[in-house]
Design a binder for these strands. Structure first.
Lengths: 148, 148
DNA sequence: GTTTAATATCTCTAATTTGAGATAATGGTA
DNA sequence: TACCATTATCTCAAATTAGAGATATTAAAC
């Protein structure tokens, strides 16, 4: 009985996690599309905006996409002149992606709108509930990653 | 200041929500692939398994996929003989998807493994923490859906 | 009884993503 | 030095997904 109860809670947690993720990202994705990007492109730009130039591999790890996809997305962003590739001097296997001035300006322009979309997306919780949710999701995510 | 604090919590919540969703579903997706399905196919089968025959449209709503995609996925599952299409007698625009005996048996076979994967994926939280997370995520998801 | 709007599915194209393998560079070891 | 395992990126084909429009049906308004 305890086992059954536990099992139902786990399945239910998976379901509500999926649904809330989908609805919350629906808000941010709609905002991102308005600016002519897809969510992956935005993810790459956001990493570079906050962390500075990064090796392609590390970008892929941060936003959880495959190596083939990273090449494809960085190609598109380079064509849009939002970033440039910079070979690494010490390790010639490594290539950094770095925002152009245009790319940095673009992100600065769209970020207020993005923040608004995020605020609206998670406005269902109070500040205190957000803190609780953050703590629980951190613990959940970290454990899932470690046991993968 | 309060505003800044609030803003950071919202962004952080989005980030930890995304990461925990990705890592948790990494577990279940790996299990699903082992059985020769992709997550969308499994989602369709799971809906039919638990809710009985459903109009294609309603399946799409439940697992949040596009109409073009639902046709494609149901085609594949029909080829695999896991489900059949059944035209609706009352409304001839509607087509039901219904599990075949083979499809029901297949799901019964893989469900224990699926449940195990789910358990492992969310094992980072205690039963009490799961209940808290479920309540918070329900509230978050419902509000995000309603304000979309 | 038309007309109109809404609904359900399907078709088709284009975009996105993965995964396997190729290429090249690095680091360590014998 | 030569060899081997590992790493980083890229290439390419196949799988997956979304989105726009086509078709058929229903329901409601007139």
């Amino acid at each position: 009985m305890a086992d059954t109860q536990q099992r139902n809670e786990s399945l239910e947690l998976l379901i509500v996690l999926s649904r809330s993720y989908n609805w919350v990202t629906a808000h941010t994705n709609r905002d991102i599309r308005r600016h002519g990007l897809n969510p992956t492109e935005f993810g790459v730009l956001e990493v570079l905006y906050h962390k500075g130039p990064q090796p392609l591999q590390q970008i892929g790890e941060k936003i959880l996409i495959s190596s083939g996809n990273i090449t494809y997305v960085v190609d598109k962003l380079e064509k849009k002149q939002l970033l440039v590739r910079k070979p690494c001097a010490e390790d010639r296997r490594v290539i950094y992606a770095e925002l152009t001035d245009q790319g940095r300006q673009f992100l600065a322009d769209i970020f207020p709108s993005h923040k608004e979309a995020v605020e609206k997306a998670v406005s269902g919780l109070t500040a205190e509930e957000k803190r609780q949710a953050i703590a629980l999701l951190k613990k959940l995510g970290r454990a899932a990653q470690e046991s993968f």
